[in-house]
């Protein structure tokens, strides 16, 4: 038997919003430690990894490990039926071919349940090597979303360049060139407005706007986003899910032909 109850059900709604443009189907791997998802987009350019720790749920029971293959478009449709303040419970029997989502209003006066068929997905998991990143940049998630949206007008790619002076985002195309520089903030009233850079060595990498734009669908999840970069390895874009886990996107760089 698997049962996970989340009073802050809107976190799950936001997680689905962050995934549905990039992935059409994926498996949720459930264990007594929590729920995990790892999947590549269809083009195998990016990888998404989601972790929801058991202790972040208000009730969590997972008697035996199970992998629930789901059509994420369908799951997203169902989660859109939950109100932002609804309590969400996910339930499945062992070896079941369906999953049930229960939405309770905070006053318990409205209860809805939706059943969805599970899929048999033969998904491969990738081993992500432990990496000490050359540069780790933390910035407001809304700022990152704005930068990517603005620069996407100029070209298909964004160059992210991190030095000890700050981080520079650049794009070039037919209409011209755009450059946005962010310096590390000296002092801020609110921690979530800060730009912080931890740098071991300068690093410059080029990434496809299309994917970065899809990653910023997770902006609703967290006030800050963390970008981790090292020469010639995938970029990591991480958003925290409250204090119960994270959504991490890995994006392969563009390389010189």
């Amino acid at each position: 038997m698997f049962e996970a109850r989340l009073v802050q059900g809107n976190l799950l709604k936001k997680v689905l919003e962050s995934l549905k443009d990039l992935l059409t189907e994926a498996s949720w791997d459930c264990a007594d430690t929590g729920i995990q998802l790892q999947a590549m987009d269809n083009s195998h350019v990016s990888l998404v990894s989601v972790q929801l720790r058991a202790d972040g749920f208000d009730k969590f029971r997972c008697d035996r490990q199970l992998s629930m293959g789901m059509n994420l478009t369908s799951m997203s449709k169902i989660l859109r039926c939950a109100a932002n303040d609804d309590i969400i419970t996910i339930k499945a029997q062992d070896q079941a071919d369906n999953v049930t989502f229960v939405f309770e209003s905070p006053n318990q006066e409205k209860v809805a349940d939706y059943e969805m068929k599970l899929m048999n997905l033969d998904q491969e998991h990738l081993g992500i090597p432990e990496t000490d990143y050359a540069a780790v940049i933390k910035l407001p998630a809304a700022e990152f979303q704005r930068i990517i949206k603005d620069l996407s007008q100029f070209g298909e790619s964004v160059v992210i360049s991190c030095t000890k002076e700050g981080v520079k985002f650049s794009a070039a195309g037919d209409i011209g060139v755009g450059n946005i520089k962010l310096a590390q903030t000296a002092s801020v009233d609110k921690e979530e407005e800060a730009v912080t850079i931890e740098m071991q060595e300068p690093v410059t990498l080029t990434f496809a706007c299309r994917y970065l734009n899809m990653f910023t669908k997770a902006t609703c999840l967290a006030p800050q986003v963390t970008l981790s970069m090292s020469p010639e390895v995938p970029l990591v874009v991480e958003y925290k899910i409250g204090d119960m886990g994270h959504v991490r996107y890995y994006l392969a760089p563009k390389i010189e032909d």
Binding site: H44, S46, L126, G127, A208, L251, A252, K254, I255, E256
Partner: peptide, 14 residues
């Protein structure tokens, strides 16, 4: 010109 790399060139299949 730059070319898009695949994530599979960096992470191994388990």
């Amino acid at each position: 010109m730059s070319k898009q790399a695949s994530i599979l060139s960096f992470f191994n299949r388990r």
